[in-house]
């Protein structure tokens, strides 16, 4: 219990530091920390704003953006494994958290990590009682080789299943179920945690 809250504090601190560092945070993710136990640490938007008061918005009732530190997954240089990083995501409401985490997968931040989601558009990301509905659009550049498709599916699952409330992922492409994302791997519908 003690240990857990310590890590929580540390991560919250990291989140504040990233917010302080400014908007470059999205592209310059901290180095991989796979040994960090909790996959998600929340810090309310207040922590950030107390450290760095922002200019009041024109709409005073607009909710403060929230931040969370999450694990993000990229291809390694060789294309045979994943690289995990700790990234702070910013989102308006809880329902936007998953989309924000997915978008972070498109910004590896350094040349040793390769985005597996170039050419992907996350058209719709919705969580309904444990079921995460994800509608994708893939442009021509999104289609990779067989091994990279496997890594892409792994990265997608690891990213979304780090949120304990996500039990299943229902992936569609342009609104339709597909047998395979890129023509090598199965695309189960839904993807379950065990898979």
């Amino acid at each position: 219990m003690m240990q857990k809250s310590t890590i929580r504090v540390l991560l919250a601190g990291a989140a504040i530091a990233t917010v302080l560092a400014g908007c470059g945070a999205r592209d310059k993710a901290p180095a991989a920390q796979p040994q960090v136990a909790p996959s998600v640490a929340h810090s309310s938007g207040n922590a950030g704003s107390s450290a760095e008061p922002q200019a009041p918005q024109s709409k005073p009732q607009a909710p403060q953006p929230k931040t969370a530190s999450v694990h993000t997954y990229f291809g390694d240089e060789n294309g045979t494994g994943l690289v995990v990083k700790q990234t702070t995501i910013t989102y308006a409401s809880d329902s936007d958290k998953y989309g924000a985490a997915l978008k972070a997968l498109q910004h590896p931040g350094d040349s040793k990590a390769v985005s597996l989601f170039d050419g992907f558009t996350f058209k719709s990301v919705k969580l309904e009682s444990g079921k995460l509905y994800l509608d994708l659009k893939l442009d021509d550049q999104a289609r990779t080789g067989s091994e990279a498709e496997e890594l892409t599916l792994q990265a997608l699952q690891k990213t979304l299943f780090q949120f304990p409330e996500v039990a299943e992922i229902y992936v569609t492409v342009d609104g339709a179920k597909v047998d395979s994302l890129m023509g090598h791997m199965d695309l189960p519908y839904p993807i379950k945690r065990s898979q």
Partner: peptide, 10 residues
């Protein structure tokens, strides 16, 4: 039979 794709240096 397939053709692969990853990075420009792969």
């Amino acid at each position: 039979i397939h053709g692969n794709k990853y990075t420009a240096s792969s």
